[in-house]
Design a binder for these strands. Structure first.
Length: 610
DNA sequence: TACAATGACACA
DNA sequence: TACGTGTGTCATTGTA
C-alpha cells in the first residue's frame, strides 16, 4: 500500500504527511467517493467538525485512507454519509488493517431525531441537509433487497444520499456532521449520546465487514445434515419433495382418512382433523402436541422437516452461500430497540441443528461467546436494586434470585423474572411477580414505571439514550376518545394501552442490552485487530453477531488470544455502558470447529441466553 | 397477475 | 377475563 512506485504516489500520499499530528492534528476526516472510479475528496476536521485547511482531492481513495489510517496515534475518525454504501464499496480493496473508527451520518441522524422528538423523520444526508437549510425534506429511498442473485445491482445502485442536484456532497457532509456534533452536545447527556453514536457507527463497520467476510459454511456438512434429515436431494429440481418428506405426507394422508391433503395449508389440515373428530383452533405445534390422534405427531414431524427444507435447504444454500461463506446483509439499527435486523437468508434465525454446517476452515476455529442471562443482568445494573445486584454478582443470576426470594426454586425465579420483564401477569406468573415486587422493589419499580409511561403514551429510553417510538396518531386517538366517553372503544383502548406498556417495559431492558452488546462487539473488533498474526491475511475476524452472541473465525493458534479479547471486551462494555456497577456480564466462551459444537460446549448447565 | 394479509415457526 | 417483547421468511389465501 504505502510507498509504491508509480507517478500517482506523490498525490496519493500527500494528505497524510502534510497532516501529521504536529502540523495539523485532524481528529476526523470527512470522505466522499467519486460516483465512478477510484478517486474522492477528503476534508480534515477538528473533533467538533470544523474544517482544517482546504479539501483534498485524491485519485486513489483507498490508498489515501490507508495512509491516513497509519498516522499515529490512532488514525482519524472517518466521517461519511453512509457506511453501508461507502465502506462496503471500499472493503474489497482495503489492505489488511481496516478502518478503525467512523461517524456514520445516516446511522446517527435517527438517534438524534428521536431525542429531539422528531422520531422517524427521514435520515439521509440530503434530508439532514434540507432540514439544516429549511428546505423541503426528501423522503428516504426504500432500502434495496439483498443482492444475492440480482444481476443488476451495483450498476444501477441508486444514490441514497438524496442531496439536491448541484449540491457539493463534501460541503453538505461537513455541514451536516458539524450540526450533528452540535446536536449531540445539546442532548441531556452528551457523553452517553456520544458513546451511543460511536457504538452505532462501529456497528456499521462491523456489519459491512461481516457481510463481506461471511460466516464459514460447509456445503458438505450442510448436505450431510440435510440428507440425514430429509433423505437424498430430489433430482427433479426444487419442486419435488425430498423422500422423507414425501413419505411423511403419504403417511399423514393415510392417518387422516386417505384423501389428498396439502399439509402446508392450515385450513385443509384443520378440516381433515375435524373429520376425524378432532377440533382444533389452529395447527400450532403446542396444540397438536395435546392431541391424541396418530396424525398429530406426523403433522408435527412434517412441519419440523418441511421448515428445514424450505428455509434452510438446498435452495437456500444456492441462493445465499458462495465460496464457502454465508453472506447475509446486516441492518444496523433495523430493530427499534437497537438490535440488528438482517436481510436475506434469515441470518438471525438459523435453526440450531443447521449450525453444524458452520465449519471453520482447516487450521482455523470458531470462538463462540454469548452473554448468558444478559437481560436480567441489565435490569439489575439499570435499577441498582441491592437484592438483584447480590444475585447478579453470582455466576447464575437465577439461582441467586431463587436463593434470595424463592426458597432456592430456580425455575420459579426464572419464570417470575421473565414475566416481570415481558409484562406477563396472568396465572401463576402473576404470583411470582408479586413476590419479586416485595423482594426487589427497585428493579420491579423500574420496569413498572416504564410500563406506566408507555400506557399513558410516553416514551422511554435505553441506558445510552436510544428512544422508543412514540405512539401512533391512531393510538392517541383511540385513547383520547375512550377517556372522553367510556364507549365501546374503551376495551380496545385499554388493550392498546396495556400492550404499549408491555412494549415500553421490555424496551428499556432489550434496548439497554443492545447498548451493551454493541459496545461489546465494538471493543472486541478493536481488540481483535491488535492480536499479532504471523501471516498478514490470517487474522481473527468477527463473522456472526446475534443480539447477545458473537462468533469469531480465527487461526487455531490465536484462539486463546481471541478468548482473552472477548472477555476483556465484555468488561470494557460493562464499564462504558454501566459505569461502576457491581453487576457482571460474563461471556460464556467456547471454541470448536463448528458453531454447533461450540454452542453446545459443556452441556452440564441449563441454557439461559436471554 | 401482482400484491397484501395471514398463519406458522425460526431466532434472541 | 387474559394478554410476554422484538424480528424474517415462507406458502397459502384473499383482494385489487
Amino acid at each position: 500500500m504505502a510507498g509504491q512506485q508509480d507517478d500517482r504516489t506523490a498525490e496519493r500520499l500527500a494528505p497524510a504527511p502534510a497532516m501529521t499530528p504536529e502540523s495539523a492534528p485532524a481528529a476526523r476526516v470527512a470522505v466522499v467517493a467519486d460516483p465512478d472510479g477510484r478517486g474522492g475528496s477528503l476534508q480534515p476536521l477538528t473533533e467538533g467538525g470544523t474544517p482544517l485547511g482546504a479539501p483534498l482531492r485524491v485519485r486513489d481513495l483507498v490508498a489515501a485512507m490507508a495512509a491516513w489510517e497509519e498516522v499515529p496515534p490512532a488514525g482519524p475518525r472517518w466521517v461519511w454519509a453512509a457506511t453501508d454504501e461507502l465502506y462496503s464499496r471500499l472493503l474489497p480493496d482495503l489492505p489488511e488493517r481496516r478502518l478503525a473508527r467512523c461517524h456514520d451520518v445516516k446511522l446517527v441522524e435517527p438517534l438524534l431525531l428521536a431525542q429531539e422528538d422528531r422520531y422517524g423523520e427521514p435520515r439521509s444526508l440530503g434530508a439532514a441537509w434540507a432540514r439544516l437549510h429549511g428546505q423541503p425534506v426528501p423522503a428516504d429511498l426504500p432500502e434495496g433487497p439483498a443482492a444475492a442473485d440480482s444481476d443488476q445491482d451495483s450498476l444501477f445502485a441508486p444514490d441514497r444520499s438524496r442531496l439536491p442536484p448541484g449540491t457539493d456532497p463534501l460541503t453538505a457532509l461537513v455541514a451536516v456532521h458539524a450540526e450533528q456534533q452540535r446536536r449531540i452536545a445539546a442532548t441531556a447527556d452528551p457523553a452517553r449520546t456520544r458513546l451511543l453514536c460511536a457504538a452505532e457507527s462501529a456497528g456499521g463497520l462491523i456489519a459491512a465487514e461481516m457481510g463481506h467476510d461471511g460466516l464459514p459454511w460447509s456445503a458438505e456438512a450442510h448436505d450431510a445434515l440435510l440428507v440425514e434429515l430429509l433423505g437424498p436431494r430430489p433430482r427433479g429440481g426444487s419442486q419435488q419433495q425430498p423422500p422423507k418428506l414425501a413419505a411423511l405426507v403419504a403417511e399423514l394422508q393415510q392417518a387422516l382418512g386417505g384423501r389428498p391433503i396439502n399439509p402446508d395449508s392450515p385450513a385443509q389440515v384443520l378440516r381433515a382433523f375435524a373429520e376425524q373428530g378432532v377440533s382444533l383452533a389452529s395447527t400450532r405445534n403446542w396444540l397438536l402436541r395435546q392431541v391424541d390422534h396418530p396424525a398429530a405427531p406426523l403433522m408435527i414431524q412434517y412441519k419440523e422437516l418441511s421448515r428445514i427444507h424450505v428455509a434452510h435447504g438446498w435452495a437456500w444454500r444456492e441462493a445465499w452461500v458462495r465460496d464457502g461463506r454465508f453472506r447475509p446483509e446486516y441492518v444496523v439499527g433495523g430493530v427499534v430497540s437497537g438490535r440488528w435486523a438482517s436481510r436475506g437468508g434469515g441470518a438471525l434465525q438459523i435453526p440450531r441443528i443447521m449450525r453444524g454446517a458452520a465449519v471453520a476452515d482447516p487450521g482455523w476455529l470458531l470462538v463462540v461467546a454469548d452473554a448468558g442471562q444478559l437481560e436480567p443482568r441489565v435490569l439489575a445494573a439499570l435499577s441498582g436494586d441491592p437484592g438483584m445486584i447480590r444475585a447478579g454478582a453470582r455466576g447464575d443470576l437465577y439461582a441467586g434470585l431463587a436463593a434470595e426470594a424463592f426458597g432456592g426454586d430456580r425455575a420459579r425465579a426464572k419464570l417470575g423474572l421473565l414475566g416481570a420483564m415481558y409484562g406477563q401477569t396472568s396465572g401463576e406468573t402473576g404470583q411470582l411477580v408479586a413476590v419479586l415486587r416485595r423482594k426487589f422493589p427497585q428493579a420491579m419499580g423500574l420496569v413498572e414505571a416504564a410500563a406506566r409511561t408507555g400506557e399513558t403514551g410516553g416514551v422511554v429510553r435505553s441506558r445510552l439514550g436510544r428512544v422508543c417510538p412514540p405512539p401512533s396518531a391512531e393510538w392517541l386517538d383511540r385513547n383520547e376518545s375512550a377517556a372522553r366517553a367510556g364507549d365501546g372503544l374503551a376495551d380496545d383502548a385499554a388493550r392498546d394501552s396495556r400492550s404499549r406498556g408491555r412494549f415500553t417495559r421490555n424496551f428499556v431492558i432489550q434496548a439497554s442490552a443492545a447498548d451493551w452488546a454493541l459496545a461489546m462487539i465494538a471493543a472486541l473488533r478493536r481488540r481483535l485487530a491488535l492480536i499479532p498474526s504471523e501471516v498478514p491475511g490470517d487474522r481473527p475476524r468477527l463473522v456472526f453477531f446475534q443480539h447477545d452472541e458473537v462468533v469469531v473465525h480465527t487461526p487455531a493458534q490465536l484462539a486463546d488470544a481471541v478468548r482473552e479479547a472477548v472477555s476483556a471486551a465484555g468488561e470494557e462494555a460493562r464499564r462504558l455502558v454501566f459505569g461502576d456497577t457491581p453487576v457482571h456480564f460474563p461471556l460464556d466462551t467456547h471454541v470448536a470447529a463448528t458453531y454447533l459444537d461450540a454452542k453446545e460446549g459443556t452441556d452440564d448447565e441449563p441454557e439461559d441466553e436471554d
